[in-house]
Amino acid sequence: MNTFTMVRPEHLNHHGYLFGGSMLKWVDEYAWLVAARDFPGCTLVTRGMDRIVFSKQVKNGSILRFSILPWKQGNTSVTYAVEVHADSPGAMQEELVFSTHVTFVRIDEDGHKTALPKRETYRSMETS
């Protein structure tokens, strides 16, 4: 799945570029939205992000494209590969500016891990 956002002044750090915390918030939120759609009715929480790589500075006014694809599924967790590309103002093409993997775990009403539905009901794998 792809989704987009634009970098605005309130997203900038003291050097005038995108604040890393803003990027991490978007990545967590957008990846969760994909997971929630892939596993409707399941309570999913963020378990973690692996190696977080900020590849390039991102300028104000850049349009960010978040590419979020299923990576792997375990019994109680699912991991998505996330790449973020920036289309900077005046640029001729997008550049990869960020990448990571985000893992979510399904929990029950008591906060304990519980099994995810089987892969055949995993919508992203069917449509990708």
Rank of each mutant, 00 (worst) to 15 (best):
A81N: 15
P9R: 11
R123W: 13
L96D: 10
T46V: 11
S22L: 09
Y30S: 06
L12V: 01
A81Q: 14
R51C: 01
L33M: 13
T79H: 03
A31W: 01
R123V: 15
E10I: 08
A91R: 01
H11M: 09
Y30N: 07
G111S: 08
I52K: 02
L33R: 15
V53L: 12
K25P: 00
K118I: 10
E29Q: 14
D28H: 05
H15F: 13
H11Q: 08
D38A: 13
V34Q: 06
Y30W: 12
I107Q: 04
Y17K: 13
K25G: 04
S55C: 14
L44A: 06
D87E: 11
I68C: 03
F54C: 03
G90E: 02
R37D: 09
F54G: 00
I63D: 01
Y80P: 03
V84I: 12
G48K: 12
D28A: 13
F39W: 05
K113Y: 06
P9G: 11
S55I: 06
L12D: 02
G41K: 09
E94I: 03
N2F: 12
P40H: 08
R8E: 13
T127I: 15
L64D: 03
Y17D: 08
P117W: 03
R51F: 05
Y30K: 10
T43K: 15
R65M: 11
G21H: 06
V53T: 15
F54T: 05
Q73I: 14
L44G: 04
L44H: 08
S22D: 08
D110N: 15
V34A: 06
G48M: 11
P40K: 09
E10W: 09
S88I: 01
R47Y: 14
Q57R: 12
I63S: 08
E29R: 12
D87M: 14
E29F: 06
T76V: 13
T121E: 13
L44N: 04
K56C: 07
P70V: 03
F54A: 05
V105L: 08
L12A: 05
N13T: 04
G20L: 07
T121M: 11
S88C: 09
A36G: 02
P89C: 00
V82K: 00
V58P: 00
Y80N: 02
K59F: 06
M49R: 10
H101K: 15
Q73M: 15
F4Q: 09
K59G: 06
S62R: 00
E126T: 12
M92G: 12
D110C: 04
T103L: 09
H14R: 11
S124G: 11
T46C: 10
H14C: 09
V7Y: 01
S124I: 10
T114K: 10
W32E: 02
M6E: 13
H112S: 14
H15N: 14
L33V: 14
R123A: 14
A115G: 07
L12I: 04
V7M: 02
T127G: 03
A35T: 07
M92L: 13
T114Y: 06
K59Y: 04
R37V: 06
H11G: 01
D38Y: 05
P40F: 07
V84K: 02
V7K: 01
P89H: 01
D50C: 07
F98W: 09
S22K: 11
G21M: 05
L12H: 00
